[in-house]
Design a protein around this nucleic acid. Structure first.
Length: 650
RNA sequence: GCCGCAGUAGCUCAGUGGUAGAGCGCACCCUUGGUAAGGGUGAGGUCGGGAGUUCAAUCCUCCCCUGCGGCACCA
């Protein structure tokens, strides 16, 4: 090792230092003020503790509290350690495990026989604030592996022993102290506990979590916290959470009378008239788009004999997720075991298999709004987002290997256009390639993966590759979209499958007169109508695009003398294809406006004596204070034009 | 499925070992009011289900169901 090293600063200047100089010493060599402000450094891009020595030439960039990424990383990471220390000081028998930084905060997993209560969280928070106020020094040492293991064995911390054993041999075992409290940690950290803002963190919740994410292992207790640089950022975050809660589709679904759930059918939706209107409008739209895209629509059975599921492989691999249906023995005239279909693909192959298919029939794009039932684990159920009964906008394209690329490109174009129509401009594509356990030749994987990749390039979309994440039989694309508040949802999918046609013996007669196996492309754009509607509701906070709104117009009377006219207006609107209702209740216009505004009705037409007399309506749009009086004919024409679905006004 | 928490009127929630209350909503009456809550009266509950403790359970205990927050799952 050289005695002197050369460090380059962000401005391009470089200076010589003795090898082993710490990042903190480098900061001090520049200026007193930088030494005071410094919290960490980037050394050749790696986040570097001020206390760590540098023994090679490289680029160094000293970081301060005004550097977002580094400051938040340290705040959250140190908060995690301070919390773990607080917990062990309050309950010395608790065993510590891991505590990483996550989005907006951190968590730390503990092994403790008693559950943490909300009061415990308060006590922990209080203790954390004391630790922060104490401004205890943070220091670090690199330990010998054997010493670290024996240390934790003696201290009764088996999880730490396991962690150390999992650290690759070429990596140092680093210990950190926050005051008297010690933890295994790769760092970096602050210089003292007082650098964590005491008024900008909050313990959020406690929940269960498995050690190492493995459901066969010990269940631990996880405490989640959020932390920011200052009190205002924390407040903003908490406000954001409240806002997100206001657009929770379960809440809006109730408020807008869209659907409900009840005990007798967990994970299954009771759609109300308003919600079902959204559903059918969306379905009509998808049907038009797919017909336009050259799909044919089919419909296949819900209840299917286990023989088909055995043939498809679902009975062996998916049975725990299937609803098994048997007829009571005393009524049954035949001995059969059926299952509700969890997927449509095997049924679609049955349709394909009827009659001899020619290569001229390919590609055959077979769509179904297929109702599926899956016995999802109880803990997975979540409003419309995760249900046990749902309908996919499913389709299977039967084609030759040569046709995959074009079909894939066409699919991406269709999907992008649908997402745009529904108000989502941005989506990301992930290409999952061959996994370790797979079937099929390397050559065919090469060709099919290339086909998907070329198809994406053709469409000009960006994508990323997720190596090894494909299905055992073929690669796939996943499409994720980002909603109005930045959350990501995985919706669309495109999977290449030579396996199921093989299992279910699908074939076509090729140009050569011989039988061939088609490929089957599984694809969906929305995923399921249920989930997609949930996402739409949250994305728009209930204010869906006009053409999707279940109640588009309410005609509200100001005086009861206008009741007849209101009904006439509603009739005119309905005739023009609009979804309109009259509100002739004995209430003041203020009351009606408020109620329908809260109910997110996009347009309120107020009618009173004046409107009756002149055959007009007074139009008010949701969220606007201004109203506008215009002739009934004009209003009807205008609103009718607005309610045309996007694909029909191109 | 696992850990924790919860379940009282349609909704949001208060409450007590002696079979229940508010606000909103709903019904009826008065009011005919011009753009985000006019007034009055009234109806409405096996306090999630089952067992146990008790003279007595909505309240305490146990089991189950459902929901919520995570975890695991989403071939």
């Amino acid at each position: 090792m050289a005695d002197q090293i050369s460090l380059t600063f962000p401005d391009g200047a470089s200076r010589e230092y003795p090898a082993g100089v710490t990042a903190g010493e480098v900061a001090a060599s520049i200026s007193n003020s930088l030494a005071k402000k410094a919290i960490s450094a980037r050394v050749d891009g790696a986040h570097w503790d001020l206390a760590w020595p540098i023994d090679r030439d490289g680029a160094i960039d000293i970081k301060t509290m005004s550097d977002d990424a580094e400051a938040l990383e340290l705040i959250r990471h140190d908060a995690a350690h301070i919390m773990a220390r607080a917990v062990q000081e309050l309950w010395p028998d608790v065993k510590v495990t891991i505590g990483p930084v996550i989005e907006n905060g951190w968590y730390y997993d503990f092994d403790r026989s008693e559950p943490f209560t909300p009061e415990d969280l308060g006590a922990i928070e209080k203790r954390m604030k004391e630790i922060i106020a104490a401004r205890d020094e943070v220091r670090t040492e690199v330990w010998d592996r054997a010493r670290a293991i024996s240390h934790y064995e003696q201290n009764g911390e088996p999880y730490k022993v396991e962690l150390i054993e999992a650290i690759p041999g070429d990596q140092p075992i680093r210990m950190y102290w926050h005051g008297p409290w010690q933890d295994l940690c790769r760092g970096p950290h602050f210089q003292h506990t007082g650098q964590v803002p005491a008024d900008a963190f909050k313990l959020m919740r406690v929940s269960g979590a498995y050690w190492r994410g493995d459901s066969t292992r010990q269940q631990l207790q996880r405490i989640y916290g959020v932390a920011f640089r200052n009190r205002q950022d924390l407040k903003d975050h908490l406000t954001f959470l409240e806002e997100a809660e206001k657009r929770d589709h379960r809440r809006l679904g109730r408020e807008m009378h869209l659907f409900h759930f009840q005990e007798e059918a967990p994970g299954q939706i009771f759609w109300h008239p308003n919600g079902w209107k959204i559903y059918t409008t969306l379905q009509d739209y998808m049907r038009r788009r797919q017909t336009e895209g050259g799909y044919v629509e089919v419909n296949t059975p819900q209840v299917v004999d286990r023989k088909l599921w055995e043939a498809s492989g679902h009975w062996a691999n998916y049975q725990e997720h299937m609803f098994i249906v048997e007829v009571e023995e005393e009524h049954a005239r035949e001995k059969r075991i059926n299952a509700l279909k969890p997927m449509n693909c095997p049924c679609h192959v049955q349709v394909f298999n009827q009659g001899l298919k020619s290569y001229r029939d390919l590609p055959l794009r077979m769509a179904e709004f297929g109702s599926c039932n899956r016995y999802e684990p109880s803990g997975a159920l979540h409003g419309l987002m995760r249900v046990r009964g749902f309908t996919q906008d499913d389709a299977h394209i039967f084609c030759t290997e040569e046709q995959i690329e074009e079909e894939c490109a066409k699919f991406i174009e269709l999907l992008a256009s649908v997402y745009r129509d529904l108000g989502f401009e941005r989506f990301d594509i992930k290409l999952s390639t061959r996994p370790e356990k797979r079937v099929g030749s390397e050559e065919s994987w090469d060709r099919v993966e290339a086909a998907l990749e070329n198809a994406i390039k053709q469409t000009g979309n960006a994508y990323e590759i997720d190596p090894g994440e494909g299905a055992f039989y073929g690669p796939k694309l996943d499409f994720k979209l980002t909603d109005a508040i930045g959350r990501e949802w995985q919706l669309g999918t495109f999977q290449v499958d030579p396996n199921l046609p093989e299992r279910l013996d699908a074939e076509y007669i090729g140009q050569d007169g011989a039988k061939h196996r088609p490929y089957m492309l599984h694809r969906a754009i929305l995923g399921s109508f249920e989930r997609f509607i949930g996402i739409l509701i949250e994305n728009y906070a209930g204010r869906l695009p006009f053409w999707l709104m279940p109640r588009q117009v309410v005609v509200a009377t100001i005086v009861s003398d206008a009741d007849d006219y209101a009904h006439e207006v509603v009739a005119r609107l309905r005739k023009a294809g609009l979804r309109a209702e009259a509100d002739v209740r004995n209430e003041k216009i203020n009351y009606k406006v408020r109620e329908h505004s809260v109910g997110k009705v996009p347009v309120i037409l107020a009618v009173g004596q004046r409107e009756v007399a002149e055959g007009s309506v007074n139009l008010r749009r949701l969220g606007e204070k201004q109203t506008q009086t215009l002739p009934l004919d004009v209003a009807v024409t205008e609103l009718a034009a607005e309610s045309v679905p996007p694909d029909l006004c191109r």
